[in-house]
Simulated scan of single mutants.
Amino acid sequence: MDWKTFQALLSGVNKYSTAFGRIWLSVVFVFRVMVYVVAAERVWGDEQKDFDCNTKQPGCANVCYDHFFPISHIRLWALQLIFVTCPSLMVVMHVAYRDDRERKYRAKHGEEAKLYSNTGRKHGGLWWTYLISLFVKTGIEVSFLYILHRIYDSFYLPRLVKCEVSPCPNIVDCFIGHPTEKKVFTYFMVGASALCIVLNICEIIYLIFKRLVRTAKKIRNRRPPMTVHHDDYHDDPFNNRNHPLSKMALKERPPSFRTANKGYLNPPTLKIEEKIRASAPNLTVDL
């Protein structure tokens, strides 16, 4: 496997990823690829040679090893890493397709013409491609974890296994080489895979939530704004208590009910009394 090509692929995908996608790439490259290349390959270097059985029956050790290890951990993880990184090629190919369309469009309409504001922006079809790639990566991670769980019984590696498969003459004890070391690396790789699944789910939720917020803003901007007429508001007799009127407005304002009926409610008795006193000063009038 060409790990330099694999690293170049991950670096190219990093340009079009979100924050969760960049963390996922870091976890894949540092905690899975580097551990796989530096340490795990050496632990599982020649595991069939380290698989010893207490019998010299020809073919018994080979059959027992194939029975308990139908597929090697190291080869299964290599397949998992290849399949997990393949969906990222969908995003890279979609961006390359956009770049090609942009180049043809500029060649036809001029250098300043633009078909896309940014070919790497996750908008439209590229958003769907990116989201589908996340679902595919999550499905691949879960599938390989399930396969490893089914084959090796909850990721556990015993020190001793008992084999009674033909051509073994009877129940044979077989010993696995470096069992504790293999168990530690198995749990570590399973934990890194589970962390990648959590990051993929977080990125899916983030993309969907961001798309919903953007759609809600578009719907809000399409609605016509409601205009409030301030003149009508001030003319309302129920709302103009706290708004003082000018002198001209007070003069033009019609009289209220209390002012119009003031003459009827309070008769001018004082003016009549003054007239009577002026005509007859010695007369006392009780009103």
Score class of each variant (00 low, 15 high):
Y152C: 00
C163W: 12
E181Y: 11
P179D: 01
I171P: 04
Y187D: 05
I201V: 14
K162Q: 13
A194Q: 10
E203H: 12
V190C: 11
V184L: 07
L199I: 04
Y152W: 03
V190K: 09
E164G: 14
V184Q: 07
V165K: 08
L160V: 14
P167M: 11
S193G: 13
N200F: 14
N170C: 05
F155G: 05
Y156E: 01
P169T: 05
I176Y: 13
K162C: 06
P167F: 10
S193F: 01
D153L: 02
V165Y: 11
V172A: 00
N170F: 12
A194P: 00
V198I: 11
V198K: 06
K183L: 11
V172L: 02
L195V: 09
G177D: 03
S166M: 01
S154Y: 14
Y156K: 00
H149F: 15
G191Q: 00
N200W: 11
F175Q: 07
I147E: 13
F175D: 03
V198G: 12
A194N: 08
T186F: 03
C163V: 04
S193L: 02
K182H: 08
I171K: 15
V172T: 14
P179A: 04
H149M: 03
T180E: 08
T186E: 05
P169L: 07
R159Q: 08
A192W: 10
L195F: 15
D173S: 13
V198L: 15
A194D: 02
I151D: 06
M189D: 08
C202Y: 02
I147F: 15
C196L: 05
T186N: 07
L157G: 06
L195N: 02
C163R: 10
I204C: 10
I151Y: 13
I147N: 10
F188G: 01
S193N: 15
T180V: 02
L157A: 01
S193C: 14
A192F: 06
I176H: 13
K183E: 10
I171R: 12
C163F: 11
P169E: 02
Y152Q: 08
Y152F: 15
V165M: 08
F175L: 03
I197S: 07
P169V: 00
K162R: 03
L199V: 00
M189Q: 12
E164Q: 15
V161W: 01
T180K: 04
E181A: 14
K182N: 06
G177M: 00
Y152E: 05
Y156F: 12
I176D: 07
E164C: 13
G191S: 07
S154D: 11
Y156M: 03
